[in-house]
Computed example of a mutant assay.
Amino acid sequence: MPPKVRLIIIWLVVIFLLYSVINDPERSADVVLALWDVIWGAIANIGKFFEELFTGSIGR
C-alpha cells in the first residue's frame, strides 16, 4: 500500500473516531468496554490454554 494512501486511511479513521466520540460518547464508551472485554477474554483464554498445556504434559 502506498504511504500516501495509508496516511489518508489513518486520518479518515481518526476523524471518524473523533466524530463518534463527540456525537455519542455513551455509545462510544460502550463500544470501548465491549472491545476491552473481548481482548481481556482472549488473553485469559490464551493463558488458560498454556496453563493446561504445561500442567497436562507435566502431570502425565
Rank of each mutant, 00 (worst) to 15 (best):
M1N: 07
M1P: 07
P2E: 09
P2Q: 05
P2A: 05
P3I: 03
P3T: 02
K4Q: 10
K4W: 01
K4R: 08
V5E: 15
V5S: 08
V5P: 00
V5M: 07
R6I: 06
R6E: 09
R6A: 12
I8M: 07
I8W: 02
I8L: 11
I9V: 13
I9R: 13
I9K: 13
I10S: 09
I10H: 04
I10Q: 11
W11E: 15
W11V: 14
W11G: 12
W11P: 00
V13L: 12
V13Y: 06
V13G: 05
V14P: 02
V14T: 05
V14E: 05
F16T: 13
F16A: 15
F16S: 15
L17P: 00
L17S: 12
L17M: 10
L18F: 07
L18I: 10
L18T: 07
L18H: 03
L18M: 09
Y19N: 12
S20F: 01
V21I: 13
V21D: 00
V21Y: 02
V21H: 01
I22R: 05
I22E: 02
I22T: 04
I22W: 04
I22C: 04
N23Q: 10
D24C: 00
P25W: 00
P25G: 02
E26R: 08
E26W: 03
E26C: 02
E26S: 10
E26P: 00
R27T: 08
R27G: 01
R27H: 08
S28T: 07
S28K: 01
D30Y: 03
D30Q: 11
V31S: 07
V31D: 09
V31P: 02
V32W: 04
V32C: 09
V32E: 06
V32L: 14
V32Y: 06
L33A: 13
W36Q: 14
W36A: 15
D37M: 08
D37E: 12
V38D: 12
I39K: 05
I39Q: 05
I39F: 08
I39V: 13
I39E: 06
W40P: 00
W40C: 11
G41W: 04
G41A: 09
A42Y: 06
A44V: 10
N45H: 03
N45P: 00
N45W: 06
N45V: 05
N45A: 15
N45E: 13
N45T: 10
I46A: 10
I46N: 05
I46V: 14
I46Y: 06
G47Y: 01
G47V: 03
G47I: 02
K48P: 01
K48D: 10
K48M: 12
K48W: 04
F49K: 06
F49I: 08
F49Y: 13
F50G: 07
E51R: 14
E51D: 13
E52H: 12
E52L: 14
E52F: 09
E52C: 11
L53K: 14
F54C: 13
F54R: 09
T55M: 08
T55G: 03
T55Y: 06
G56V: 00
G56W: 06
G56P: 05
G56I: 02
G56K: 13
S57V: 11
S57P: 00
S57Y: 03
S57A: 09
I58T: 13
I58D: 12
I58E: 14
G59W: 04
G59P: 04
G59H: 10
R60C: 11
R60N: 15
